[in-house]
Structures are given as C-alpha cells and as structure tokens.
Design a protein around this nucleic acid. Structure first.
Lengths: 202, 202
DNA sequence: GTCTATAGCCCGATAGAC
DNA sequence: GTCTATCGGGCTATAGAC
C-alpha cells in the first residue's frame, strides 16, 4: 500500500481495497438517502474522494456498485443469521432469532437494512435475485417447513406461512425506517414478534 | 369536443379530458413496467399520442403526472373499500373486506395496486403522503381500535396490530405482482386472510 | 492503475408559430 | 390550447496523458 500526498491536493487513498470500501460506503449512503437514480457518478466521486477513472476501473458502472453492495449486505446478513441460529433449538426460537436480527439491524444499521430489503433493486440492477429468494429467506422457509412437520406450526402451505411471517415481521421495520411508527420499534419488538408467531403457530 | 384529422397525420384526440385520461393511462403502464425514472417524457408523448406541449399544459411536469395518478388510484380504492364496508358488521368481516379488496384488485388491476401500494413514491414525488397514512389505512386502524375495545382483538397497541395485519396481508400481494408466489394468490387467499386474523384476534 | 477533461447522448422543460 | 423544434444542462462513460 502506497500513500501519496499530491502537491496542493487532498490526500488520496491509494490502496485499491480502501478505495472499494470508500466507494461502496459513500454510494450506499447516497443511494439510501436520495434514491439510486438521483445519485450521479460525480456525486459519488466527490463523496468518496475516489476519481471517476478509478471508480470505473474498480466497478465498471454505477449499476455494478449497487450490485456489489447488495451482495455484500446479503452475505453479511446471512452470516449473522447463521450465527444466531446456532443457539436455537425450537421453531419458535429460530423464527424469533430472524426477527430479532432484523429489528436490531434496523436500529444499528438502518441504511444496510433499507438497501438490502426495501429498495426496489429491479428498478436499477439488471438480473438481480429478488430479496425473498436470497439465502436467508430460503433458510427461513426450511425452518417453517420443519415447523409444520413437527407440529409447531399449523398445517398448510409452508410458502404461505413463510410469506405471512415475513410480511408481519418486515413491515414494522420498513415503517420504522420511514419514521412512521408512533412508538419506537425497540419498545414494540416483542409485540410484533408475538403477533407474527400467533399468525402461524398451532 | 372537436375532432380534427390533420392531413397526412394520425387522428389526434382534442377533448382535454380524453387527453388527461390517455396520458395518465399510458404513463401509468410505463411507470409500472419500467420504473418512474426510466420513463422519459418523449416516451409518454409517443405512447399516449398527446404532444409534449399539451402534456405540459395539462400537467406541468412529469412528477405531477405521477402525483395525479396516485391521488386518483387512492381515491378510487377508498370508494371501493367504503362500499364493501357497508355490508359488514363484525371486526372480522371488516378486516376481511379490506384484504379481499386488495387481493381482488391485485388480480383485476395489478398495475393499479402496484403503483398505489408498492412503488417508492418518495423517490419521485415530493411531499407525497406515505401510503400507510392515506384514508383507507386510517379507516383500517379505526376498525382495529374498535376491535380491541370490543374484545375481538387482543389487548395491546392498536397501531402495532394494524401494522402486523397490513404486513401479513400486503406482502402476498406484493409477491404475487412480482410473480414470486409458487401458488396463485387466488387459491391461497383464505389461508392468508386467516393467518393475518390469527395474528391479532383474541 | 490513476488521474483530468470531455465526448456524446438524452433528458425535462420551454419558446414561439398557429 | 396545441403544435413542433429546440435549448440548456447534467448524465454515464471513455480517452489519453502520466
């Protein structure tokens, strides 16, 4: 890694990995704040401190920045989810760990959750996997399938159950991010999780 | 209303009301199909058969087309909802009529539901009322408040109940529109409605 | 690999004849 | 009110020096 102080210029980050980080980081904030289409490449250049040329060299296009960001966030979410699942035995606990992870991250990393779950990726990323077909949601469906098999969850279409559960869990997070909940999510977490569970339990 | 057949030109619609209709109609389709930001004014001009000048005279801006569309759809939805509420007495019936309306319209007018409920209006319409603060959703919350008061719905925060219910009801519609449900929504409607009710009933 | 400068395009909106 | 023609601007992406 080489650092260079150009005469009369800002310090530039030379390490390519730091550049990638910086671009993803600032693009992320801007995308969430203004919406993908209202963020221009010059704006990303200015915010990240990385030049147009370097950005195109590293990512190839604005769309690709968004794609990379999406992959990174989904992957990281999946790791956290698997981590939490370790300590769970019952269907209830496993589903609860999913919901708690969503709600905690909604508080701790709102922009991450917003980009990963609530932006309309199909509007700006070609051939993107829909959110509910990503790994964490597949795992959730398996948990629900098993839950039906072992009698923890009412008999019925497991996909329907999964959609109900995720609908009941995700909407509070979405409204929290839009500042539309009159009560802070942290105070109503349990109520939301119990409601969602009541929707599908035996 | 005057109709004019220009020499060597297409027939032009002259009645201003028909023009408004045509613009809203074609813009609506394009917005849903491609996303607001990927629809250009020239594209709306071509699709609607109304000239640039006339469009700007009638609506003033592209954003205003979207705004008008949103108002129209919400208003029309509210009328249908009130209509259906007439025949309902119990809390269960009232909530069910909301869900059935959503699901029927998802089948009969998918573009209408998609634009009204699932586009990120804040990304392209300034100062737009969030969907969940529009009249139909307010009415829904009142129904739930009454339901708690009369013991049909579990004690608790009425707003939380409303968010859970709408989350559980809306997500199936959203996934249906994205063609992500393995089973047609029409076949699983009852299951979804029962799940959502189970989430909040006493 | 990285920079600056800019090409080339298409956008939303307007001007001005009718 | 409605049309066509076009403006000014900002965009993504590239060219070319280093």
């Amino acid at each position: 890694m080489t650092k260079v102080l150009l005469p009369n210029k800002k310090i530039r980050i030379i390490d390519p990995e730091s550049k990638r980080e910086s671009i993803l980081n600032f693009a992320h904030r801007l995308f969430v704040e203004k919406g993908y289409h209202r963020v221009s490449m010059p704006a990303i250049v200015e915010a990240s401190g990385v030049s147009t040329g370097a950005i195109y060299n590293l990512f190839g296009s604005k769309e690709n920045i968004a794609r990379t960001l999406h992959q990174k966030l989904t992957h990281s979410f999946m790791l956290s989810f698997q981590n939490r699942l370790q300590g769970c035995t019952t269907t209830y606990e496993k589903l609860r760990s999913f919901a708690e992870l969503i709600y905690e991250q909604t508080e701790n990393d709102p922009a991450g959750i917003e980009f990963m779950l609530f932006m309309r990726h199909t509007d700006f990323i070609a051939d993107i996997t829909p959110v509910c077909m990503t790994e964490p949601f597949k795992v959730l469906r398996e948990i629900i399938k098993d839950g039906i098999a072992c009698g923890d969850i009412r008999q019925g279409n497991y996909f329907v159950c999964a959609v109900t559960y995720t609908g009941a869990i995700l909407r509070p997070a979405q409204l929290e991010l839009e500042c539309l909940l009159p009560t802070p999510l942290s105070e109503t977490t349990d109520e939301f999780i119990e409601n969602a569970w009541a929707a599908i339990k035996t």
